[in-house]
Amino acid sequence: MADRPKVCFDRILPRDLMRLQPTQRRDGRVRAISPIGKTWMNGSALHVRFMGGTAAEQAKAREQAGWWSEVANLKIEFNNAPNAEIRIAFDSSDGAWSYVGTDCRSIALDQPTMNLGFLDGGTSAHEFGHALGLAHEHQNPAGGIQWNEEVVIREMAKSPNFWDEQTTRHNILRRYSADQINGTSFDAESIMLYFFPASWTLNGAGTQENDTLSQLDKQFIAGAKMYPKTGNTVSDAVELKVNAQRRTSASIGKFGEEDLYRFTAKKDGRYVIDTRGPTDIVMKLFGPNNETSLLAEDDDSGTDLNAHIAADLIAGDYFVQVRHYNRARGLGNYTIKVRKL
């Protein structure tokens, strides 16, 4: 079949199939999808190290990564740092794939977090979409693709993919459940959607090849659920004193707002960060001394709808990100405190 597509691996660490947070599906213009818990802290600087590749291949990766950083509130720095969050190989025998968002931090520093085994069209942009926290659009639970599973499994077993049935089901046929993602409606023009022939579907409705970011890709990556340029950044983080006598009062005053905090753990030990109040809060902890290294995330482990994180920390600086559970419509007051036990 001449129009058999090349498809990338969706490398999401297995724990995500076990650690889900509930989300509500809403009508609206949000189209792209992102697995919950995979976004970096808004305003972060992500560093990239090449693990091979020609000058032309590296230039292509830089160019298409820039499509995202032009609209998202993130910096992507190609500085080959030893501890770079994103590490790119160019192994032509290993296809194209990337770990998703902050999963990159769980991969050993001597291993790639992305492989660009082919660079057709917008492949680099697609894989950087994964690295920023986006998932495959064809696995959107709101998508309307009616797969002919027998045909898809048969064709993906052939060149250039050579996938077994399990791999095909994981990367193409399986859809995320609504409680695994941010985002709702299906975007047929998304860079995160591959071309699939009409013959692979039951109703003869295939998908087109998308080599650039769609308008809705740009809106989503720069929107309240991902990396808004109007949102708070690390430089705006409010200092929290460990074991302060009073709790710090705060509020989510507008839709999509994120509150950022930082605190210093002067000694190794067990620390507790928690919120209190009537507001349904989601909280993330990053560090030490690094705003992109996600350590923990919590939704409702505290009292009522409050967040509670207890972690063994080494001495260093840490960052806390707080947002409303419902980024699109949630507002409310809360308090926050850090304690060393």
Rank of each mutant, 00 (worst) to 15 (best):
G133K: 09
I153R: 12
F90R: 04
G95S: 07
A89M: 10
F90A: 13
K75Q: 15
A142H: 15
G95Q: 08
R154I: 08
E150P: 03
N115D: 06
K158F: 02
C104I: 14
Q166G: 12
D179T: 10
N79C: 09
V152L: 11
A84G: 12
G143P: 01
T113R: 04
A131L: 13
C104L: 14
E155Y: 03
P160N: 09
I88E: 04
L116M: 01
D164G: 12
N161D: 07
D179Q: 09
F90P: 02
L109F: 08
A84S: 13
N83E: 05
Q139W: 06
Y99C: 08
V100Q: 01
E155D: 10
K158S: 07
Q111C: 09
D91M: 15
D94T: 02
H136K: 11
P160D: 06
G121H: 05
E149Q: 08
P160S: 14
R175H: 08
N83P: 00
H170V: 01
D91C: 03
S98H: 06
A96I: 04
Q180H: 15
C104H: 09
A142D: 12
A81I: 07
N80P: 11
V152C: 03
D110A: 11
Q166L: 10
S124D: 04
G117T: 05
N161S: 07
D103F: 05
S93N: 07
P82L: 15
Q166T: 14
R105V: 09
E85Y: 07
P141I: 06
N115G: 13
G95L: 01
T113F: 04
L132D: 00
S106C: 14
D164P: 09
Q111S: 10
S159H: 13
R169S: 13
D110K: 08
I172H: 03
N148P: 11
S177T: 15
S92T: 14
A81R: 12
W147A: 03
E149C: 04
W163F: 12
K75I: 09
S177G: 13
T113M: 04
N115K: 05
Q111K: 12
F78Q: 04
N171V: 15
S93V: 08
E127M: 00
E149F: 06
L173E: 08
I76L: 13
H136R: 05
G143T: 10
W97T: 02
A108C: 04
F118H: 14
Q146Y: 01
S98P: 11
R174W: 14
A125I: 07
F128P: 00
H138A: 02
S98K: 01
F78L: 14
M114Y: 03
N140G: 05
A178N: 12
G129W: 01
A96E: 00
I86P: 00
A142R: 09
H130K: 02
L173A: 15
N115S: 04
E149V: 11
D120V: 06
D103G: 08
L134C: 05
E149P: 14
R175D: 13
W97D: 01
A81H: 13
Q111T: 06
S124H: 11
D120F: 02
E155W: 06
